[in-house]
Simulated scan of single mutants.
Amino acid sequence: MAALKITIYCFFFLQVLLCLLSSCALTNAQGLKVGFYNKACPKAELVVKKSIFDMVKKDPSLGPPLLRLFFHDCFVRGCEGSVLLELKNKKAEKNAPPNLSLEGFDFIDNIKAALEKECPGIVSCSDVLALVARDVVVALNGPSWEVETGRRDGRVTNINEATSNMPSPFSNITTLITQFQSKGLNKKDLVVLSGAHTVGDAHCPIVRNRLYNFTGKGDSDPSLDKEYAARLRRKCKPTDTTTDLEMDPGSFTTFDKSYFKLVSKQRGLFQSDAALLNNQETKSYVLMQTKRYGSTFFKDFGVSMVKLGRIGVLTGRVGEVRKNCRMVNKY
């Protein structure tokens, strides 16, 4: 009997040990960690931070497009820098309709050049995007979080993948939830990351249908506050394609929680913003962040950004560290 007990004990101990080892293997397989470049390129994060803070100090409006680059990269093939690649046939991700308004590629090039000068061939373009996203938010008075690094860059970019994978500003809540879940992001992540619309701007075509022809009968979107809709119509005539619209009027270069107040008052610029009120869980989060005290948005944003930054990463010997973010290395 004693021998049997020892055998059973050893069996369960072995099962627990194997389980723990398996868990560690899964964690390590991700290959990301905070401070990945501490030894190989100790000044890497400092180089990125200085570049961002210098830029935002001169012109804060340049910051939000860089944050947007990270989102657009991670939702297509994962966070592996494919949104930065160019192809001669113009069939790259950046040529897809959802990406035609992306900006900041030259600035990413400048940061990468500075990093290549500091430590050649060490810091990936995909990690540059992740670090830039964090530093832009901080520079615009938003929260900070520890960025996991160690990503490697992909060698493939496909215009069709960008068209089919990017969440649309015209999407309803069901589509948005499905798209985010397909990337391992839940409903809370959806509404938290939508909060990034507290900075940046868009152009009139993004709201044209909401203002002038929502159901094809020359009507406006009933989910849009009437006073806000009238204000937008004064700015955007039906054929206007160039006028800038602040996504968070009055503070579009300050990362704060006022976005949620706008959404709660039906003054979100995009249909996808308004859609957050059409699900009980996302609506509850929106309303919670409008309270004077107890907002968790800043903390939650950092958590969701870390989750976003883990999507489809390439680590170890998979992928490469591009010398030029716009093209794959030549071997």
Rank of each mutant, 00 (worst) to 15 (best):
N172P: 00
D244I: 15
I8S: 11
G81K: 05
G216T: 04
N165M: 09
L67A: 13
F11S: 11
E161M: 15
C204E: 02
V263T: 09
L211K: 05
L21I: 15
P64V: 04
I311E: 06
R151M: 09
I122H: 04
R151K: 14
P143I: 11
D153N: 07
A29Y: 14
A44M: 04
S171W: 03
L14F: 13
A275M: 08
T296F: 11
K330T: 15
R151L: 08
R322T: 15
F252E: 05
S51C: 03
F11N: 04
F301D: 03
N110R: 12
G200C: 03
N172T: 03
K187N: 06
Y37I: 13
F75E: 01
D201G: 12
S182Y: 02
Q30E: 15
K265W: 01
L87Y: 06
L131Y: 07
V137P: 04
V47G: 00
P65V: 12
D54F: 02
H197R: 02
L129Q: 11
L21D: 12
N213T: 12
A196Y: 06
A96N: 01
V83K: 01
S171I: 03
V34E: 10
P60Q: 14
Y285R: 01
A274D: 03
K183P: 00
C79D: 05
K291P: 02
F170C: 03
E148N: 08
F260H: 01
F170Q: 05
S251P: 03
M1G: 13
M288F: 11
L20C: 14
E93K: 07
K257A: 11
D273V: 06
V286H: 00
G195A: 06
G268D: 06
D248Q: 09
L66V: 14
W145M: 08
T149W: 03
I206R: 09
M166H: 07
S82N: 14
V156F: 15
G121I: 13
R292G: 07
S284M: 14
Y212C: 10
R292H: 05
S220W: 00
D153I: 13
T7M: 12
K5H: 14
G218T: 12
A230Y: 01
M247N: 10
A44V: 06
E103V: 04
Q30P: 11
C24N: 10
D59L: 13
S284W: 10
E246G: 09
P65D: 11
F71M: 08
Q266L: 12
A133E: 11
G184R: 01
V123Y: 00
T315E: 08
I108C: 03
G78Y: 03
